[in-house]
Amino acid sequence: MTRRPLRRTGLGLAPIAWLAIVLYGAFLLYPILQSVLTSLTDRNPLKTASNFVGLDNYAELFTDARLMESLRFTAIVVVVVTLVSNTLGLLFAMLLNRTSANYRIMRTLIFIPQVLSGVIVAFIWRSILTQNGLLNVTLQNLGLVDAPISWLGTPELATLSICTVVSWITIGFSTVVYTASLQSVPPELYEAARMDGASALGRFRNVTFPMIAPGVTISVVLCLITTFKLYDVIAVLTGGGPANSTRSTAFYLITVAFTNNRFGYASAIAIFLLVLTAVVAYGVTSLLRRREARI
């Protein structure tokens, strides 16, 4: 009987692989399952016992005005950040897509906000935007305004400020993705379009845009996922205020869990957020992929 050498070789590596799978099970799969189970109870860490409440927590989702407010805010930030970051990212990529050292340095600089933690970025911007912050100081020094502007103090301006800061972070990523996409466009295509008498706008529409379609998918989806889990920037910049107007759903979830100690309801929000993220990310990916194939 001849032994197949392939059999024996699986051993040895398997224990390490299984250790990794067990850890992943414990720290990612089990928590998701646990969230589902907890979402069916009224669990509160300050009480000893918790009761099964069925789908009550999920029913509460639909009547929770604060959750709706957080969803509205999240939707605004997601849409604005995705649009701004991708538009400016593409413009930056086109502006900086040259080979000399100058442009290499500029591309390096534009990516730096991506490397900094959200907490640091938010503190930098807070010191700029706060009531007696550096922007108001500068504006007053120049005599442009008489009284300081409340950049973080009114719901509208605070929302605008959050969108600006998050876009500022994600633009670096979009720029890198689009730069790589542009560099993958064969120069012959432009040459051919030019020979056919296409204008600059026409070349962009018919050559650049179709060729960078995969880049659009990547950049848009990553902007979406980043914005859905937004927490640190809000925590530092506005703390969710003023009047809870800048609470993202992820931020609201943490408040319900750790401030209100409503673990049961917080878990229902968590599962809802997970499903929402998955549906939006998957939906947008397949939508853009289909568009990629068409153009």
Binding site: Q34, L253, A278
Partner: peptide, 24 residues
Amino acid sequence: ILLGVFALGLMVPPQVVLLPIVQL
């Protein structure tokens, strides 16, 4: 199957699993 299961981890917002992890 394994890659599908691991893909989940790329997408889950950390807030979703935080509470059970703290309890675990």
